[in-house]
């Protein structure tokens, strides 16, 4: 039953900053942009650990986790979220990310299935489209 609902329902997205990073301007803008694009947005506030983010994503049965970090810790925190998600049975939850991510870090994150990796000044529309695309691909796979 939940599975059927999942393929047609509104996109449920968890936006999170998995680390010691209070720079929430971007994440709050994105949360509003996802909401205005018709998604159900869950924002868990500041300072969750990567493990808590993954747990919340599974508990809330979301389609996507959108991660943002501007403190340079993305190479530690993003993979931790993904790893924990997989361990909790959340493999089908798409993980997208953004922040200040140098080009050289991108292939490593992409290889883990963390996509988007939007930098400052990215268009909101482009980010929304990317999230939709990821969810559609995951849903087709079901």
């Amino acid at each position: 039953m939940p599975k059927m609902g999942r393929s047609t329902r509104k996109i449920r997205i968890l936006v999170a900053k998995p680390g010691l990073d209070g720079h929430d301007r971007g994440v709050l803008v994105l949360a509003r942009a996802f909401r205005d694009a018709g998604m159900e947005v869950i924002y868990i506030g500041l300072l969750p650990s990567p493990e808590e983010v993954a747990q919340m994503a599974v508990d809330e049965d979301v389609d996507v986790v959108a991660l943002s970090l501007l403190n340079g810790a993305h190479m530690t925190a993003f993979p931790k979220v993904k790893k924990r998600l997989d361990a909790l049975g959340g493999k089908r939850i798409a993980v997208v990310g953004g922040g200040i991510i140098p080009d050289e870090d991108k292939p490593k994150l992409m290889k883990l299935g963390i996509t988007g990796l939007f930098g400052p000044g990215s268009s909101l529309q482009e980010i929304v489209e990317h999230v939709r695309g990821r969810v559609e691909r995951e849903r087709r796979r079901d």
Binding site: L20, N71, G72
Partner: peptide, 22 residues
Amino acid sequence: DMPTLYGYDCDHERAHGEVGRC
């Protein structure tokens, strides 16, 4: 850096990956 700003020592679990970065 972030661990200092939040009052964690460099060897705290929450500091991992964040020491000296910002």
